[in-house]
Design a protein around this nucleic acid. Structure first.
Lengths: 221, 221
DNA sequence: AGTTTTCTTAAGCCAATCTTAAGCGGCAGG
DNA sequence: CCTGCCGCTTAAGATTGGCTTAAGAAAACT
């Protein structure tokens, strides 16, 4: 998720950048209104945090410009202007939220999540060239859609959710097949084989590696 | 625009009701959590204002229940609980905004407008050449009106609201038929078949795709 | 009450999917 | 170097689950 911060006070920028980066966001910064608007218009961001008072162009102008350019990227005002009139003006300009300084980072984070929630394409799991969308029930192999059966899908999803961790055979049986261990009939092997084939992966040294006597592991790289 | 207020303090209720009515909203009130949730689940409101502390069921439970029932009606918390932790919890439960008492009516009004603005897609649902107007109870297939029965309409509406997401059979049964899962008698298939026919869609690879063992998905594009 | 529409149930059919089983081959320990 | 275990691969049989159709039940309308 890419977030653009349009803010000129270095202290706040650093504070935000560090916190958001730690939370796993890609953060980009613009130090004045002009470059901020340019970047925002590019439309590559999932969310924009914008200060009101800025050099060259103020936050209000930026959000107004964005909306009249039909760009719907969610925008949150982050500003010291704290009168009701300011808030109303900010929101009316097309912003999606308005947070008064000083604010708690936790609250900002949650309000960001609210905005991203409505815009979310859903979570996804990735490893190597594989992307799996649980919500869409879809798997892409280097961008190419791959047709997996239900069991194959569930198995691959389990492996991906435990990326870089060993998945023991009995655990897989339990989770995917709902069987107690010691019922190992070799089903897993059949399905691993099927998945590897459909993904064009070798049975040895590929994305899904065999740990003899233990289980399997998906190694991202 | 219909707004539901779930709040037990008469003073606040009157204050809100009067202000919102003057602004042209249709206002409905529930005085406790139980009836509030019932009304909210009906899905006829455009927005819900909810207090946190309520008789019978608190606001948190209400919003949680709404979201897990897949009802996306925007909800705004309106509460005296003002710690950061409360705010975060409220927003995380699925609410769209969180306003601490005491608040200015002007700000509430603007925040309501923000929610209605972003959710204004409610007037119509589209995918492929299909357009569905929930309010008019009308469906167009490439501009040509299509005659759907009540159940067909509700089912298609549900699928379109969850465009590009898998709709699981048990979820469909629950939402459209009000049945608990494990009552799968094959009704869904009959109706999907009917809808596909009326829309001139193939049973395979068309707009409404079957995900074997899971459910259906409407893929736009 | 009669007629028409809509909803639900049931059953047969077929293809996708799952499971089992068996042969093969490599790796590890003796 | 042999032997047994374990995973790979394949194919055949069993099963599931969705599609389709039709007919009876319920609801809506006249």
């Amino acid at each position: 998720m890419r977030i653009l911060i349009i803010e000129d006070e270095a202290g706040i920028v650093n504070f935000l950048r560090q916190g958001l980066t730690e939370e796993g966001f890609d953060v980009d910064v613009a130090g004045d209104g002009e470059t901020g608007l340019q970047k925002a218009l590019a439309g590559v961001y999932d969310l924009i945090l914008v200060d009101w008072m800025l050099p060259k162009r103020n936050g209000l102008e930026i959000v107004n410009a964005l909306r009249s350019a039909n760009t719907r990227t969610p925008a949150i005002f982050l500003t010291a202007k704290d009168t009701v009139h300011d808030t109303v003006t900010g929101l009316r300009s097309g912003a999606n939220d308005y947070l008064k300084k000083p604010f708690h980072f936790e609250e900002l984070l949650e309000r960001i999540r609210v905005q991203l929630r409505t815009h979310e394409t859903g979570t996804m799991l990735q490893a190597g060239g594989i992307t799996l969308y649980p919500d869409q029930h879809e798997v892409l192999n280097n961008g190419e859609p791959v047709q997996l059966t239900q069991k194959e899908f569930v198995l691959l999803e389990y492996l991906l959710r435990n990326k870089d961790k060993v998945c023991r055979r009995n655990r897989i049986l339990e989770v995917v097949w709902g069987l107690d261990a010691e019922h190992d009939s070799g089903v897993i092997d059949v399905y691993i084989n099927g998945i590897r084939k459909k993904l064009g992966q070798p049975s040895d040294g590929g994305l899904i590696q065999t740990i003899r006597g233990v289980g399997y592991i998906v190694k991202d790289k």
